[in-house]
Amino acid sequence: MGRYVIRRLLQAIPVLLGATLLIFAIVFALPGDPIRALAGEKPPSPQVVEVLREQYHLNDPLLLQYWYYISGVLFRGDFGTTFQNVPVGDLMKATFPTTLQLALTALMIQAVIGVGLGLWAALRRGKAEDTMILASTLILISVPTLVSGFVLQLLLGVKLGLFPIAGTSEGWYSFLLPGFVLAGGSIAYLTRLTRTSLVETLRSDYIRTAVAKGMNRRRVVGRHGLRNALIPLVTFLGADLGNLMGGAVITERIFNINGVGSLLIRGVYERQQPIVVGVVTALVLVYILANLVVDLMYAVLDPRIRYE
């Protein structure tokens, strides 16, 4: 197991290097001049522009620029600075925990609601509850975050005053509503996935065996069915953590949460390569780690899977 983990982590190195190069090149290829974008309405003098371009190596070829960047990261732990001279490392340190907290809250919410509703629907298959749950997941999938975010903010935050309207000043509690909004589509998807998985599992031969052994329904479903049905869900939950972190932009905007999404948007608008590359690389790392955890979870849940 330990060797397997180490091998997987070593494999992550070329992936991360490749990802950084790719993102670096994409930002490089974007039209527009970052220095002019920085200056805004009033154009700076050509001399100033030239000095700044030299300072940020903007006149050098792509690969050389990339080398300056990646050697800084690798040898000095320096993720570069913004044009405002703020270290990108500090920005990421300030925003990542916030977004991670938001994403984890969303993940918890979708695991509880999605799996719960899915199990309920599967056990009441073909009955009224099942149809209702399936219909409501359809609605949940169809409503974009932009709508559900503002509506819930207005309804539960402003009108009813149940949740904080914006910001993160109230700790975990202030993440609940944004977390739910962020989890929205995933809740619906997970509900359907859980339902299908359990229905499928309950049709298998070993469930018939459990019934033939004289186990009551509670035990048949809860002990013999559930663990098998959960295996495919772990993949979804793991992969979704990355999606939630990267997709938190809109939610963060609506609820005025200072997270990775806002930072990334700013980086793209201002063509600040170090911000974009730093943030995206960190997100890639989250994906890789989440997938590794998923694979390890598999081995825990399914004894047929072993890593050596």
């Binding site: 298998s204 031969d205 070993y206 018939r208 065996t209 459990a210 019934v211 033939a212 052994k213 004289g214 186990m215 013999h224 663990r227 098998n228 849940l301 399914d302 004894p303 047929r304």
Partner: peptide, 21 residues
């Protein structure tokens, strides 16, 4: 109460009839 205790059954495909986990 009868199933498994007084009347028991075995099936054709033992691999799929046993719980893999």
């Amino acid at each position: 109460q009868v199933r498994g205790q007084r009347i028991a059954m075995i099936f054709q495909d033992a691999l799929s009839s046993l719980n893999p986990v």
